[in-house]
Design a protein around this nucleic acid. Structure first.
Lengths: 273, 273
DNA sequence: CGTTATCTGTGCGTCCTCGCACAGAGGATC
DNA sequence: GATCCTCTGTGCGAGGACGCACAGATAACG
């Protein structure tokens, strides 16, 4: 079983202490996720917790009229199923595979056992939940204050961070669902970014020509969320990623006080070479 | 010390098992909160966890440009300081007393000790956190899809639920900050509700003339959040409240599928006579 | 290779929200 | 009672997002 796959490709699992990791790993099951796979239905039972390695997963909330918004996007830095160890058995949202890839999963029942070991896993889960709370809060703020263009930049950057190249496989339609806006609105914002030479969009594929261009137009929420994540996983060995531009704060803005306390401008999201 | 105050006026504390409650109660300190008191600063240290009894507390997130949105509103059904037992010591948002009243507080250090008893308190905290996650997610959705008018209705209903009368002490200015819109926008929406004879707004005081009117115009997010709360505190003795109209679903809408599964229309938020 | 389905781009009118400016209206204070 | 400050109401132009309709373009598929 000498596959190139390893649970530690998920950064949360990688954070576990050895003893705990070894207790857990026999129960981790590698799964191959295809784009569009639905892992949780809204209000459906959650059978597994998922730790993505190369896949990314979207959690959406849906309104009665069909309107949607993406509430969380989970890559190898996170975990799907926080509700499970919060004592809820059913998911509040719908979880859909957004980028095909692999994940490890753990049976809910097994997790519940682990739950009462109150070891480092518990601590890590709680810290992760805290991060998620912060992210979602920032999202709520972002939704009510920032334009479609800014939010598109944020969305693209967040997808880029989880992509292994400068290309993202996504349609404007699905971006629209994530942002909770019309498809035409995304087309408009995309056209604007294309005229600026920042991206190129071609039938289900975005090519990011200038990451710096996205950085320059994104709202502060991107940096805030990056910051929350880097606090969660502070001293982790860097994971090789394609993005070569370190994040830098937008120029001309007042010194951010609230969400980057003390810290000088430095890459918020640890990236490889 | 025979005050009319009792920790069990907070519904989360009331849910505790007796043994646990007795272990905790000597450490609970009653505090008198005035409107506007700042309990947490954004990114500030959290010294206490607060369990409101008659007070309500707003958690706001603030943008660099000063824009704000209310992320959570905490009354006697909840607790301020989830981040504390998530392993974070600093608050992500700013917590301000929104309605004056009382709360019990617990030193953070004491909470951390309690934390490792992994008793029912832990379970309850986790369940509460789950509820908060759901609420904030719904808020993010609401912010990106619903009009100021709908959101004003939601906001008023949520305040009314925590009020002891049909009158709410609040200015349009502060509502605007909570909703993340302009003050004039609130004036406009308020004027609309006043013309409909649903409310009356007079210099820092709203009088709700027709709760049913608010119910009729509020978006589904109110019901969703009520539902999440009633799941958290399902079989609790009702707390006397002034609202006399039971919640009922808006007429003419398609049968809600996602967030009120199975259940028939019934009061989502338990109210007393 | 031709058809088909999907994805992207565009135009136009409407509505909502914003930003600004300013006027009236209560309370509070002295 | 006169003055001040805060709160509420209004008007208007600008910009953004929506809803709808439709055209071109490109990948997929038989």
């Amino acid at each position: 079983m000498n596959t190139p796959h390893n649970p530690t490709q998920n950064r949360l699992l990688a954070e576990l202490e050895l003893a705990e990791f070894h207790r857990l790993s026999p129960h981790l099951e590698l799964v191959d996720l295809a784009r569009g796979d639905v892992l949780y239905q809204a209000d459906g039972k959650m059978m597994y917790v998922y730790f993505p390695t190369t896949a990314t997963i979207s959690v959406d909330f849906v309104l009665e009229d069909g309107g949607t918004s993406e509430i969380a996007r989970i890559g190898n830095e996170g975990l799907l199923g926080v509700s499970l160890f919060m004592g809820g058995l059913s998911s509040s949202g719908r979880a859909v595979v957004q980028m095909a890839g692999y994940a490890y999963r753990l049976r809910a029942a097994r997790l519940m056992e682990e739950f009462y070991h109150k070891g480092p896993l518990l601590r890590l889960r709680l810290r992760y939940t805290h991060t998620r709370l912060t992210e979602i809060s920032q999202l709520a703020l972002c939704n009510s204050h920032h334009s479609t263009r800014q939010r598109l930049c944020r969305c693209l950057l967040q997808m880029l961070d989880r992509s292994s190249s400068d290309e993202i496989a996504v349609t404007q339609e699905s971006i629209a669902a994530m942002l909770g806006v019309r498809r035409e609105g995304v087309t408009d914002a995309a056209g604007w970014l294309q005229n600026l030479g920042i991206i190129k969009w071609r039938r289900g594929h975005v090519i990011v020509l200038s990451r710096a261009g996205l950085d320059a137009h994104v709202c502060e929420c991107y940096a805030t969320v990056c910051h929350a994540t880097s606090r969660l996983l502070p001293d982790l060995p860097t994971v090789p990623r394609a993005g070569t531009h370190a994040w830098r704060p937008a120029v001309g803005l007042p010194v951010p006080v609230l969400y980057r306390p003390g810290a000088q401008a430095k890459p918020l999201w640890v990236r490889g070479i």
